[in-house]
């Protein structure tokens, strides 16, 4: 059996195992209100997927959270470039980033709700979760550029653009890739959590909140399943994109 096929079969077996455990727990609970079974959740998810509103809601949430993640990635790169140049700026920014990383996300959501409109909070929260990770990793990449290669560039009087393309980017891209791997899931989950607490119009968070209020446990599970599936799809797509970007300069790591 080929290794990738074996890997897929093993993953399916693991998934099946946990679905069976879930089914067993649902049978033991005996009430859909307490714990719906996997087929009940799947049926509800299929029903939801038949509604146009479902896809609009997903689209709005994805755009909102992705906007936050993309802004944080761009800002994180710019800040890392600035702090790489200025030790004073790094000393100022470093504790702020540590503070952001260690503060509970719920505190930020409540604070942001006071400062910002409810539509903007999920975007802001997703950005806030991603920013320190991107900043720290890109900074590590910039710090890790081999000084001997920079000396080589100086002696050979290489133009700045070529130094950026051939030395700086290949040194930083693996770190940016690692940052995105850990930050994407974080940003997406924090963004949806912010939606649940701020309930902006047409959002996954609002639908999860309403399901909780009206004790629609099956719907709550269906929306949660949609969030998990989306998270996997978005993460897969973005990581493939970033890997593609990296290959041009750093295909041989």
């Amino acid at each position: 059996m080929r290794p990738p096929l074996r890997k897929t079969l093993r993953a399916l077996a693991v998934l099946l195992f946990w679905l069976l455990i879930w089914q067993l727990a649902a049978v033991l609970a005996g009430q859909e209100l307490l714990l719906p079974s996997p087929p009940q959740v799947a049926r509800r998810l299929l029903l939801l997927a038949g509604e146009g509103e479902f896809w609009l809601t997903l689209g709005r949430s994805i755009l909102r959270v992705l906007a936050g993640i993309v802004s944080a990635v761009l800002l994180g790169i710019v800040l890392a470039l600035l702090t790489h140049r200025s030790a004073a700026l790094r000393a100022l920014l470093s504790p702020l980033m540590t503070l952001v990383k260690s503060t509970p996300v719920a505190s930020f959501i409540i604070l942001a709700l006071v400062w910002l409109g409810r539509d903007v909070v999920p975007l802001f929260i997703a950005a806030l979760m991603v920013l320190p990770v991107v900043w720290a990793n890109v900074s590590a990449g910039l710090d890790g550029i081999d000084p001997q290669l920079l000396e080589l560039a100086r002696v050979y009087r290489l133009p700045r653009g070529r130094v950026l393309r051939r030395i700086t980017l290949p040194s930083v891209l693996p770190h940016l890739r690692a940052a995105l791997c850990s930050a994407l899931g974080l940003g997406w989950k924090a963004g949806v959590a912010a939606e649940v607490l701020t309930v902006p119009a047409r959002s996954i968070g609002k639908r999860i909140y309403e399901a909780k209020v009206y004790l629609e446990t099956t719907e709550l599970f269906a929306w949660t399943a949609a969030v998990v599936l989306l998270s996997l799809v978005i993460e897969g797509l973005l990581l493939r994109l970033v890997k593609g970007l990296g290959k041009g300069e750093n295909g041989h790591a």
């Binding site: 001997q148 290669l149 000396e151 080589l152 051939r166 041989h252």
Partner: peptide, 10 residues
């Protein structure tokens, strides 16, 4: 230089 100083990704 004493060490080759080559770009490992090129």
């Amino acid at each position: 230089f004493q060490e080759p100083r080559l770009l490992g990704w090129c």
